[in-house]
């Protein structure tokens, strides 16, 4: 039985270095399913649930700091008021059972194209802190998530926290699936209307190997918006949605065809922008 149950990040890093083949475990909602199905056979495990530092969530000045071990269920209350799109994504994950166990750090490390917090964190410009034997480094979501279930994490590293700047304006997360619960996104979109930087940022989920920032659509919309009145000319949101749909690179699979996914992007992007404009006005 090789399991380490560290209570500090330093101990976790130490445990990983001492046993290079050891696998990190957080809430277990991805990890255990892979083990149950024989896709993963851990010989040694570093269980992170007891690391208090990873469970911290705080709003400090203009920054929201969330430990990698914060669960979806914990992304509520005050945190939800400051990062509503992240809270909306968290509420859309799985079921109460999954939300009680699953963590932000696990979602990032799994790096699934359908990971619901990924597009939100990408659109918010989140900074992800990793710690390893060589110390700390800070990455954007785009730098961390490099492909389908692939990350730039180095051996011996773990994700410790996720920091998001408080945004003045509005934010939305919308997700399309077959049910309201227990659904892997067919397509998702996070839109952040940032009044201070006068930019609209958008990232899509489930329609590319990685969470996809749609730069052309963002630029078009940021220019179209009258930032004093927080209004957009008629048709701008639809044009934005069209550009976002064009930028998406969905595959067709048993959940949905590529065409359906692109159409879903169109619909949720227009809706999300309109809701942001409404909320920020």
């Amino acid at each position: 039985m090789r399991i380490a149950r560290p209570v500090t990040v330093d101990e976790a890093v130490e445990a990983l270095s001492a046993e290079p083949g050891a696998q990190l475990l957080a809430g277990g909602t991805d990890f255990c399913v892979e083990v149950n199905f024989g896709h993963r056979r851990p010989a040694a495990v570093v269980a992170l649930r007891r690391v208090a530092e990873l469970r911290e969530r705080a709003v400090r000045g203009e920054t929201v700091s969330l430990g990698a071990g914060v669960t979806y269920a914990e992304l509520s209350g005050r945190i939800a008021e400051v990062v509503p799109a992240l809270a909306a994504a968290a509420r859309s994950v799985g079921s109460p059972q999954i939300r009680n166990a699953g963590t932000l750090g696990g979602n990032l490390a799994t790096a699934s194209p359908a990971g619901d917090t990924l597009p939100v964190l990408a659109a918010l410009g989140a900074e992800v802190t990793l710690r390893g034997p060589a110390g700390e480094r800070v990455l954007t979501v785009g730098e961390l998530v490099t492909g389908v279930k692939q990350t730039s994490m180095r051996p011996g590293e773990l994700i410790t926290k996720i920091e998001v700047r408080r945004v003045r304006g509005a934010q939305q997360f919308l997700k399309v699936g077959t049910r309201n619960a227990m659904v892997i996104a067919i397509a998702s979109a996070a839109v952040v209307l940032d009044r201070d930087r006068r930019e609209l940022r958008c990232a899509l989920g489930s329609v590319a190997p990685v969470p996809l920032r749609v730069a052309r659509a963002e630029e078009m919309m940021s220019e179209a918006i009258d930032w004093e009145r927080v209004e957009a000319p008629p048709g701008a949101a639809a044009r934005f949605a069209e550009l976002a749909a064009e930028a998406s690179a969905p595959i067709g699979d048993h959940r949905a065809s590529a065409r359906y996914r692109r159409q879903a992007v169109r619909v949720i992007c227009e809706r999300a922008v309109n809701r942001c404009l409404r909320d920020a006005a």
């Binding site: 475990l25 255990c32 495990v45 009680n100 227990m182």
Partner: peptide, 25 residues
């Protein structure tokens, strides 16, 4: 795989799927 909830138990009073928790953890 966490989908059906028939394995639900309370862990420190909070409902989770026992199939998605490692026994040793």
């Amino acid at each position: 795989q966490g989908e059906c909830g028939s394995c639900s138990v309370l862990l420190d009073g909070v409902v989770v799927c026992a199939c998605c928790v490692l026994g040793a953890d």
